[in-house]
Write a protein that binds this DNA or RNA. Structure first.
Lengths: 298, 298
DNA sequence: ACTACTTACGTATGTCGTAAAGATT
DNA sequence: AATCTTTACGACATACGTAAGTAGT
């Protein structure tokens, strides 16, 4: 990046950008950018980290007041994480006009806060009473719409696929596909299991459930789909959430667990077995022999 | 409040304040303040709610960069919640010059973020992997320094004081003293027990542990002191936390549970009995007959 | 009539653009 | 030499203060 480039993007001249940076650096008493080539200093990178949430909140505040002044006309804009999309689609039965948009877990609260979306349906793992991440961006209504046991997707010929149910700890050393956008990131799996392991193998960066399951079937790894507790559904203070106080209970959660099998018409996905998983606590991990885990993976 | 008063506080004239408000209202397209008398409108109150965290982050960013530019000289400034204060005092043994300041759980992260404190020791209840509230204000080092079973303080002559240990559900209908600054707020107790109850009785707004226990002894209610898991100790990125990577393990937690009994020299507080409490899960509450709880309370 | 907020206007400060100078590759 | 940033200076916009105007109490 360069001052000239930034100026072009902002509609300013290079001089103005230079003056801004100089003024800010003088104000803070720290050099923020190294020039020629232009790159953030340590202090500059730090400041940048602060800037993003602040700007996000400013945008959220402006959007909130604008919505307060003039309620938005048009269809209800619903966003959902990949595994909650089916539940969101089910909402369309009640709501005639409805816009659906699939995004990241992290992006969803942002979009709702900035009034880019009216309602968000997100899945994920959460303790009974902890707040959803991103919920503190702006005052928003949050409610839990379902709870479901966790499931894992395995290749059909996986040694552990023969069992009806598994413990997460058994899979600590399996070959996982890290698909942070679709299922839980590996880091969270480690936290949930209270154990090390869950080595980083193939990463699936997309948000496509079908694609991920295809990768599992081919044998790139054993991947777990979310479950345990239904994702909260953050909504705007006025709007969607109020109009749908009681959506189908468990809607989001059913879709989440079903996305692997039932989401495509309840016929088993080719080459994929879906098994329920009990989330291991640290104690459970310590007392359970992890020998069998090593046999796993295609 | 009045425009004139605000102007006096800001060092401006009434006119300037009037112009600012008018410009902001024109920008947002909403009336923010009702005049004569001056009071926030609904939109104004909403905007105010957004303003506080934004201003806090701005202050935190400025403080962080200032600290980065010129590390603060002088003694280590440590803050602590009332029940973690004893552990903080124990730090003084290692650190020759040390400033100690007792505050609220909510205030502590703010003070650390704005570089008003170098290190914060706070107690409280938390699930194994959830982040501490206030920790997202600024990038700060957080670590858990102890874990301890929960305890409840009862009057000596309380019917339940005869038992060596109690379940939180048993106390759902007891007469509690709500001391949100010292122990867990009643709302959190409800969440932890997964049950209704915990009726609001006397409120103890202070931060004085001894005073609270005196109130318990006199019989104003049955009050629980914190426990379960040690409070995390948020520290600045550079400074205290790095210099004390391994504080006495369990320091904060020991002090927290001990604040009722051991904190005053390990002699039992006059008229107060301290009993350990198991935190009830929703399931435990449903299956446990709550009849006995009704007998409790002095 | 008194008090408090609003509006009008003059001044000061700040911001941006143009243009020239300086620095780096 | 070419490219990019900094500095200098003039034009414009913004912000504040003074003072007059207006609206509640």
């Amino acid at each position: 990046m360069s001052f000239s480039g930034a100026a072009a993007e902002l509609g300013y001249t290079q001089s103005a950008v230079s003056q801004h940076i100089a003024a800010l650096e003088a104000d803070l008493g720290v050099r923020l950018l190294e020039r020629r080539p232009v790159a953030p200093t340590v202090a500059g990178a730090r400041l940048l980290a602060y800037a993003e949430p602040i700007l996000l909140r400013l945008a959220a505040a402006r959007a909130d007041l604008a919505r307060l002044a003039a309620p938005r006309p048009g269809p209800l804009r619903v966003g959902a994480t990949p595994l909650a999309a089916a539940a969101a689609a089910r909402l369309a039965a009640d709501e005639p006009a409805l816009t659906l948009c699939v995004t990241t877990r992290a992006d969803l609260p942002r979009r709702v806060a900035t009034d880019d979306l009216d309602l968000g349906l997100l899945d994920g793992y959460a303790a009974p009473n902890d707040p959803l991440p991103g919920t503190d961006l702006a005052p928003m209504d949050v409610s839990v719409h379902g709870e479901q046991p966790a499931v894992v997707a395995l290749p059909r010929d996986h040694p552990l696929a023969a069992r009806p149910a598994l413990a997460l700890a058994d899979l600590a050393l399996a070959r996982w596909i890290d698909a942070p956008q679709v299922a839980a990131p590996l880091a969270q799996l480690r936290a949930l299991a209270g154990a090390e392991g869950f080595p980083a193998g193939v990463t699936y960066p997309g948000t496509d459930v079908a694609g991920l399951l295809a990768a599992v079937a081919v044998g790139h790894g054993a991947r777990r789909a979310p479950g345990r507790r239904g994702g909260g559904a953050p909504g705007p203070r006025r709007g969607g959430a109020d109009r749908h106080p009681r959506g189908a209970p468990g809607g989001a959660a059913e879709a989440r667990a079903g996305a692997a099998v039932a989401g495509t018409g309840r016929r088993p996905w080719t080459g994929v077995a879906v098994r329920s998983v009990t989330l291991g606590t640290p104690a459970a991990v310590d007392h359970r022999p992890p020998a069998e885990a090593r046999t796993g993976t295609p």
